[in-house]
Amino acid sequence: MTGLVILCVAVGLTLIAGTIHRRRDGRVRETRQETSGLRSELDALGERPGERATLLQFSSAFCAPCRATRRTLSDVAEMVEGVVHIEVDAEQNLDLVRRLGIVKTPTTLVLDAGTVEVKRASGQPRKADVLAALGHALP
């Protein structure tokens, strides 16, 4: 009897959590935190930001959608002039990950020409949403 109750509760909660996750995953949202530019951080990583915008992707080893996200973002970087895609291993840069408040992979930050974060997507973003976010970030 206890088992049946636990089973029903677990299935119910899981379906709710899964539905919420599906709705939120990959959505590009406005960045709330007022960050200064990330130029010195990119320098430390040995990466050069794009002239007009940068797509900064955090990935990890145990992450299937990181690959698909990489493809989407590098496609976009090829399509739009002055935009660069940079992929960073989150595991190797935990200090930066903590400071930026990144909790899962893939997470993508859209940086403007001054390397200030203007948008962020947790999960696998759609190409159209990334393009729209860039429209916002580009001078």
């Binding site: 899981t14 379906l15 899964g18 539905t19 996750h21 599906r22 430390a44 990583l45 040995g46 990466e47 990890s60 080893a61 145990f62 992450c63 299937a64 959608p65 990181c66 940079i86 992929e87 960073v88 291993d89 989150a90 595991e91 190797q92 840069n93 935990l94 200090d95 990950v97 903590r98 990144i102 909790v103 899962k104 992979t105 893939p106 999960g123």
Partner: peptide, 30 residues
């Protein structure tokens, strides 16, 4: 099964963030 959610994506970094100080402070991209 039902949502195709990748558990590693959701949990791995959270676990690392709480358990590890910093693996490699000068770490570059992998």
């Amino acid at each position: 099964a039902a949502f195709g959610i990748c558990l590693g994506c959701e949990l791995y970094l959270r676990i690392l963030r709480t358990t590890s100080r910093n693996a490699n402070p000068n770490g570059a991209t992998a």
